[in-house]
């Protein structure tokens, strides 16, 4: 097993605390706008598509496809940053873990997995090969 990088704790604020609270139960939520119907990422109280303030938390499947990925070689623990396009539409910045860093590639199917964060922060969503 590869030694993984310690993950900084996300700085939770009132706009986002519901996401991180659900994360503790392993639930992956995204925000959807009830005015225009579109999902977005990162989660906001104001819809970035139509500017409605009627956004709501909805469960996401946690499945997606790698849009781009880069393996950071110049680090104490090698890690992969990526953009993953979720089944629900939005593309999010994340990490790919539990993968072969020499083979991980754009187009790979992935699924969410949670990792603990430093300072007893909430779990952080990363993705592994599906």
């Amino acid at each position: 097993m590869v030694k993984e990088r310690a993950i900084p704790a996300p700085l939770v604020n009132p706009e986002t605390e519901a996401f991180w609270a659900a994360a503790k139960d392993g639930k992956f939520l995204i925000k959807r706008c009830t005015a225009c119907g579109k999902a977005h990422w990162y989660p906001r109280g104001v819809c970035p598509h139509c500017f409605s303030e009627k956004t709501e938390w909805v469960p996401a499947s946690g499945r997606g496809t790698i849009y781009s990925v880069s393996v950071m070689k110049r680090a104490p623990e090698v890690y992969a940053v990526a953009y993953v396009t979720l089944e629900e539409g939005p593309t999010m910045m994340t990490n790919i873990v539990e993968c072969d860093f020499d083979k991980v590639a754009i187009g790979d199917k992935v699924v969410v997995t949670w990792r603990p964060t430093k300072d007893d922060g909430p779990p952080y969503p990363q993705f592994k090969p599906a």
Binding site: A9, L11, S70, M72, R74, V81, M93, T94, Y124
Partner: peptide
């Protein structure tokens, strides 16, 4: 630290070089 994207993106280890590298990969 209070930028709205920081809590979502900083934990990934996004630096300068790997952000540009994702553009190159795509």
């Amino acid at each position: 630290a209070d930028a709205p994207d920081t809590q979502w993106e900083f934990p990934t280890g996004i630096a300068t070089v790997n952000a540009y590298a994702m553009c190159a990969a795509r």
